[in-house]
Design a protein around this nucleic acid. Structure first.
Lengths: 189, 189
DNA sequence: CGGAATCCGTTCAGTACTGTACAGAATCGG
DNA sequence: CCGATTCTGTACAGTACTGAACGGATTCCG
């Protein structure tokens, strides 16, 4: 990719994330974004049709990163190990400002739903692959876990919990083990 | 100035300063500079004829900043107040990595001399303007002070002194008062 | 209400930067 | 010594970005 394209996009995205952490999405203008990114206004339109498109691509990029952070080994399942879960929580912790803003922002509806849907698809796929936990109703279990995980993520990025990413990862991992979502560590006889 | 020009120059200068702080000037290549600045190699040549020119402009820019830091009020003399001297020392302290590198680097000969010359011209002009200290041989006094100030600056930026910028500024100011280079605070009867 | 200001989205010519290529110089390593 | 590699400085066509302008929509404020 052309160096200039990469630089412009990075600058615009960074400026946008900073802005969305500061104020409501609706009252962010293209002018502000361009100014903050130190880029001509036309350049913004060169890459994004409008601020909704920018938001959409921004969310998309973050979701790709999020999924990536869940799959450190490449082709494994959603949360293959406790270490992977910890890694994901730390990633979320680092980018908390964006995720919290997107979750909290009234102007970004359905972000929560999209996050939940991403997790749901991930869990669903993992259940199919690993074949564990065949006895339960897959749909319900997956939904239950996706909702729970979304909530935990929201707690983490909005700083609504006093627990650190590491503590949360440990506890959530234990819960996933209890729910037989992951290869059992010590089958309880 | 075109936004792109400013950005490119800033990136190149920043990369160059980081590099000169790391290794000898002679073994820095245009390739390295371009790579570090995240800029095409041709762009470097678009702004600077070669790395010597880049170094020269870099020094020039820093000298302009240095002089600026000495003249916070605009049209005043070189060090009108103790506060101005402190400001200058703090500026030097902040940009110590560049000044130290330029002073220490074997491949940047005469940097020390240029610094000294800048200070000499500054003091000389100040003597003419303020008209103080008429009794002494101006040339010798100015030279004496320029050499001394250069040395103090070198001490500061190379971290060869345990004293802070503030402590140095205070002491040097006292010395300048003693040498009647500045408006006397309390004429000692 | 009505003017001023701001923002929108688009167009456009001009410019800076891009990657690539080239020949020659310098440096490296066998 | 010689080949391989790297760096230099220059040239080029293609591209991304720039600033400026525009009519129209929206908001602000008196």
């Amino acid at each position: 990719m052309d160096r200039r394209i990469r630089k412009s996009r990075e600058a615009i995205i960074e400026a946008f994330i900073l802005l969305i952490a500061e104020k409501n999405f609706e009252q962010i203008t293209i002018n502000e974004i361009a100014e903050r990114a130190d880029v001509s206004r036309g350049t913004v339109y060169l890459h994004y049709t409008d601020k909704y498109d920018l938001l959409d691509q921004c969310i998309r990029t973050h979701f790709v990163q999020l999924i990536d952070s869940c799959l450190p080994c490449g082709e494994q399942a959603l949360f293959p190990t406790e270490a992977a879960l910890l890694y994901t929580f730390q990633y979320l912790d680092q980018h908390a400002s964006f995720y919290a803003a997107a979750l909290a922002n009234k102007g970004v509806p359905a972000f929560r739903n999209r996050l939940q849907a991403v997790l749901l698809r991930g869990f669903d796929k993992q259940m199919d692959m690993s074949g564990i936990n065949r006895k339960m109703n897959k749909g319900i279990l997956v939904q239950f876990l996706a909702v729970a995980m979304t909530g935990m993520i929201e707690q983490l990025v909005t700083r609504a919990t006093p627990y650190s990413a590491a503590e949360l990862a440990e506890q959530v991992w234990a819960l996933m083990e209890r729910n037989q979502m992951v290869p059992q560590a010590q089958p309880t006889v």
